[in-house]
């Protein structure tokens, strides 16, 4: 018995493509002042969001974004069959506490910064598999919580190298449905963990680029599509140099996507915002996809989009023990509805 909806090695196609019914995004001040500022639903100016800790602020952002997405879909939380969410903090606390407060059956996910795309792929499978009518997904990150967990306290005087990326403060929620109006998810390519020996916790782009290139290549091989099928191939948070690296690997392997290649991390900040190589974090691909990208698809500027969530599987513990930082990438095909 073969899996009916499996094509090639890593790709699945959806018989009744699940619909992206509604989205909502919340971002911090820096993201709000960036070039995509106008595409977000809510901008918070207080990094604590009136909470006692940054962790609580992050959790609150996720909860509000998810509630907003459900409202926009014209649903109530009772209609939601599954909630799929994750974040960067230890034991994915932002997602856990959000699930506690929303009281929806919950599957917690950790895919580092690829979490939103991992959730989209799994949510689409749950719906097309007949296990759910509505799936609520979300992801979040916060500059201050991520920095102090993974690197240095934010008030410590440390010069950031030029290839360092800036963790996006923000959260996004999305409602997937079996039917309805909106863009649809037609394919998902689940990536493998790829490790090419990167160890620098400041250079996330270099850790993730091989995984992104690997997943993109398998997607093309599995589907038999050529690069010109897509109006846009957009990665999650490779940043300026990670994007360049992924592009080089792809060209070396015969896939030239230069003309339609973008990266959420490069899009979210302007060069003068001192974010160096661009944005990163779960919220990076999440808010750009749920904000800018889907709005562009709905306006008709893009019809066939290949989105690739990219994650660096960094742990402060393994990093100190001299382990490499492997990468993961999941691709999802979004088509205009």
């Amino acid at each position: 018995m073969v899996a009916l909806k499996k094509i090639g090695a890593q790709t699945r196609w959806f018989q009744n493509p699940p619909v992206i019914l509604a989205c909502a995004t919340i971002v911090g001040e820096k993201e709000g002042m960036g070039p995509l500022g106008h595409t977000f639903d809510k901008i918070i100016t207080d990094s604590h969001y009136h909470e006692k800790s940054w962790e609580k602020a992050e959790q609150r952002m996720l909860q509000e974004a998810m509630q907003m997405a459900v409202e926009r879909a014209g649903l109530s939380l009772k209609d939601i069959d599954f909630m799929l969410a994750g974040d960067l903090l230890n034991q994915i606390i932002s997602a856990n506490y959000t699930a506690r407060n929303l009281e929806v059956p919950f599957i917690g996910l950790y895919g580092a910064c690829a979490t939103l795309y991992e959730s989209m792929a799994l949510g689409a499978m749950l719906i097309d598999g007949g296990f759910a009518e509505y799936v609520l997904i979300g992801a979040c990150s916060h500059y201050a919580t991520a920095e102090r967990q993974y690197r240095f306290p934010v008030e410590q005087g440390v010069q950031r190298p030029l290839y360092a990326q800036w963790t996006v403060t923000g959260a996004a929620g999305m409602v997937l449905a079996r039917q309805g109006p909106g863009p649809v998810i037609t394919h998902a390519t689940i990536g493998k963990v790829v490790d090419l020996g990167q160890q620098d916790p400041m250079n996330m782009g270099a850790a993730m680029a091989p995984a992104a290139a690997d997943t993109i290549m398998y997607h093309f091989v599995d589907t038999g599509r050529t690069t010109d099928y897509y109006d846009l191939v957009v990665t999650g948070d490779l940043g300026t140099y990670g994007k360049e690296l992924a592009q080089r690997i792809l060209i070396n392997n015969g896939y030239d996507i230069t003309s339609c290649f973008a990266d959420c991390g490069v899009l979210i900040y302007a060069p003068e915002q001192d974010a160096h190589a661009g944005g990163s974090g779960c919220a990076c691909s999440a808010v750009v996809t749920c904000g800018y990208l889907l709005q562009e698809i709905q306006k008709g500027h893009y019809r066939h989009v290949l989105g690739i969530g990219t994650g660096a599987l960094l742990s402060p513990c393994s990093s100190l023990q001299g382990e490499n930082i492997p990468g993961i990438a999941h691709a999802v095909v979004i088509e205009a509805g």
Binding site: S47, H48, W54, A144, P153, V154, E155
Partner: peptide
């Protein structure tokens, strides 16, 4: 300092 200030982030 840790008691009297709140980190700005």
């Amino acid at each position: 300092a840790a008691i009297f200030f709140k980190p700005k982030g």
